[in-house]
């Protein structure tokens, strides 16, 4: 499948995964891949505290206003409070929104009708989709175990709220989530035991409870396998006619052994994921840096593009 076709399968792509799996990095890589394929992309960030701008080498803090992070890639935040204010302002209730927020009554309402904030965020995403705000709208979903709650909020709210505009909003959000031509979920995980278990669990819950279409699962942070690591450095030195300094052979051997061990462990987890979850996998390499900037995102976007090309069309 070519990357442009992949990005055009549905206008909304919700990127979800537990904390620490690289969800934001993957959102950035998807956006870059879309841009490289000639499409426009809008990344929507819902927590107001992510390294998204930094991933594009920008020191800006994202706000409610769209900003261009790189050619073809725009980003904005959409916190629940923002979504509430906009929702009410659109309906001529500006003062009400102010008072709800300033009095703290919004917390009471949100507790009485859990999921109401999520609905407002997803409702706004639906509006962006309807307005064709970009060829691809990437929603960097909330982290932690919240993804399932976030996406099941619409169904839950229909039980709590029987009439009114919020109910109408929830119904429309459910339609969006249930339509694979409009919306899909891209799950992200790491090739480690607990993240694999969790992504399998999340995938089943999302399919059962939300009926949302799952895109291939992204396995992030795979150590690229390197050939030639199973030789003894001392033999290799003799054959290369190089003299090793004291201690070097040990360091080379330990590092090679570590890499081989990690590659094998990760391979086991990738196999286990394939057995537990009937979804295609997109593999992204571990980058030997601890930070993600524009250069790293480009590397990942290219790797993602390669992986997508490997999918059946």
């Amino acid at each position: 499948m070519d990357p442009a076709g992949f990005c055009r399968q549905a206008r909304v792509l919700i990127v979800a995964g537990k904390g620490g799996v690289g969800k934001t990095t993957v959102s950035a890589a998807v956006a870059r891949m879309a841009a490289m394929a000639g499409l426009t992309c809008l990344i929507v960030e819902v927590e107001g505290k992510s390294g998204l701008a930094a991933a594009f080498g920008s020191s800006e803090t994202l706000t409610y206003e769209e900003v261009e992070l790189s050619p073809g890639v725009k980003a904005r935040t959409l916190t629940p409070d923002d979504a509430l204010v906009e929702y009410l302002e659109d309906r001529g209730m500006r003062r009400l929104s102010r008072r709800l927020l300033s009095s703290g009554a919004v917390d009471v309402v949100a507790t009485a009708a859990p999921g109401i904030k999520d609905i407002l965020v997803l409702g706004k995403v639906k509006q962006l989709e309807r307005a064709a705000a970009a060829d691809l709208v990437v929603l960097d979903a909330p982290a932690a175990g919240h993804a399932v709650t976030f996406l099941t909020s619409a169904a839950g709210l229909l039980d709590a709220v029987r009439v009114g505009p919020i109910r109408a909003q929830a119904t429309e959000v459910l339609e969006l989530l249930g339509d694979p031509q409009r919306c899909q979920v891209l799950l992200v995980t790491l090739p480690e035991e607990t993240p694999v278990n969790e992504v399998v669990e999340t995938a089943y819950k999302l399919e059962d409870r939300v009926g949302v279409r799952l895109a291939p699962v992204v396995v992030n942070g795979l150590y690229p396998a390197v050939a030639g690591l199973d030789v003894d450095p001392r033999d290799a030195a003799v054959r290369s006619e190089v003299h090793l300094r004291p201690g070097e052979a040990e360091a080379l051997e330990e590092a090679a052994c570590f890499r081989r061990g990690r590659v094998a462990l990760q391979g086991e987890q990738v196999d286990r994921l394939a057995q537990s979850l009937a979804l295609a996998q997109l593999h992204l390499p571990f980058l030997f840096t601890t930070e993600v900037g524009a250069e790293e995102v480009d590397v990942l976007a290219a790797a993602l593009g390669e992986a997508v090309r490997g999918l059946p069309g």
């Binding site: 390197v226 690591l229 450095p233 033999d235 290799a236 290369s240 030997f288």
Partner: peptide
């Protein structure tokens, strides 16, 4: 040479450890 990949691998891990 056979030592090339071994040093490249060590460099990868030293780089990540340094950062």
């Amino acid at each position: 040479t056979p030592l090339g990949p071994l040093f490249a691998n060590l460099a990868d891990f030293r780089q990540v450890a340094e950062r």
